[in-house]
Design a protein around this nucleic acid. Sequence first.
DNA 1: CAGTATAGTAAACAAATGTTCACTCTGTCA
DNA 2: TGACAGAGTGAACATTTGTTTACTATACTG
Lengths: 187, 187
Amino acid sequence: MINERLEAIKKFYHRHKRLPSYSEMLQLFTLSSKNAVFKIVQKCIGLGFIKKEGNKLAPTSKFFALPLVGLVKAGFPILAEENRDYLTLDEYLIEDPQSSFLLKVSGDSLIGLGIFDGDIVIIHKKHQALSGDVVLAQIDTEWTLKILKKDGVKAYLESANPKYPPFFPKQDLQIFGVVKAVVRKFN
Amino acid sequence: MINERLEAIKKFYHRHKRLPSYSEMLQLFTLSSKNAVFKIVQKCIGLGFIKKEGNKLAPTSKFFALPLVGLVKAGFPILAEENRDYLTLDEYLIEDPQSSFLLKVSGDSLIGLGIFDGDIVIIHKKHQALSGDVVLAQIDTEWTLKILKKDGVKAYLESANPKYPPFFPKQDLQIFGVVKAVVRKFN
DNA sequence: CAGTATAGTAAACAAATGTTCACTCTGTCA
DNA sequence: TGACAGAGTGAACATTTGTTTACTATACTG
């Protein structure tokens, strides 16, 4: 009962990007008393899907998040419902939304890292990086996505594909960002 | 000017999971007239970051989304600001949130597909799948994540790693979901 | 220099918000 | 049979919402 109501609220949220007001919930649930809605909301708060600041409603992260389960070791039983973790991909993958952007990968130079042609990588804008980081860089005016290597003072770029040799900058190697995550959709 | 205000609203949103009300924006911007806020909101609507239904505010997808850029072909110039696309990872990756969950991968049996140990896959709950789909299945009571193959009527599971042989079910092969996407965080 | 946007203040407004109280109608369980 | 909790109605409430109007100060522009 309460679950169907929650589903309805979630659907509303995904359509409107905001929680419904009490009077909108009246219609959602086809009820006719705001007090009924009030009690339902209290229940959702009790379940941890919604929170209240003053008297403004907001979803919690449990509200959007998907359950995260796991297979134990060699891989048999599924984790119990109890120890479930919840995860929002945006929050999980993008730590600093203000200075991040997405980049569609082309080419097979990073297949060794499991970054394929067509994948999307999340790039954090910054001009420094560590040896071993996957970076978006400009090497002698060419933009590329490669592994940064620092050999003492000299820095160069390496692929994760034996097909390609390392790239040593003739003049300039400028770093624009570091790859924080990859994402790939199937089909 | 307006951009700083937008950033402030975004920060508020990420903290509270909702847009601030006009009086909250008064404090956010340290203004003292609601009309000033009103005009700022109108501007944000004009820019396409916020929308209004009746007189309730809601963010648009442009509001959360990160810019998606791309490297052309062999990989030199970055796409111009103009033809920017915006993407929310949750929306992009999870088509049916109601019947999806996340699974943490263990093992190296799918490295050929770029799915590594520790990656997170998005699984869509369903009991049918096509040959070639990566599925979460129960084969003779063992849970596993493999590639489904259909050889005429017979179905079996295959790895994406030459180390492992195909698995033919002795009795039972039951499908619980299909992998729709993979996600990997670096570091 | 005059003219005109732009950014802000201040006050007043109807409409909508979430909350509360008292009450009814089930169905369940002892 | 009676008690009781759960789910809903209906009305009243103070607050807060977003909007509007009129007016001021600043800064840019031709």
